[in-house]
Amino acid sequence: MNVVITEVGDVSTIRLDGSIDGKTAPLVREQIAPTLEKASKVILDMTKVNYLSSAGLRLLLLVYREFAAKKGKLVLLNVSPEIQSVMSHTGFLSFFTLAGSDVEAMGAFA
């Protein structure tokens, strides 16, 4: 699992690369915590996430909600169709804001 964080204006983009499961989820959380601490608009770029396990989904939802609770806005970018269908079947999908492009993601903050 690889995490790259960039900032453009007041929007932070976190690029995840690899699979998020029981092993990597805590590491991801640790690495993105500082960004979530200071930012209020965050794009979680999922383009290169190939697998999201049960624990991964739970981590994502937890992060999303903690962030929303302090009035932040988090958008998931480019979630693969396969992961989207898993998220849909397990009921997780409806909790998130998804975007299919950068433009759409920026639009979600407006």
Partner: peptide
């Protein structure tokens, strides 16, 4: 019986069905 059984997520899938 779960589309997500291969990922071991049948519990969440069934609960989501019942909720809906």
């Amino acid at each position: 019986f779960a589309a997500t059984g291969r990922f071991g997520m049948q519990v969440d899938e069934l609960k989501t069905l019942i909720k809906d």
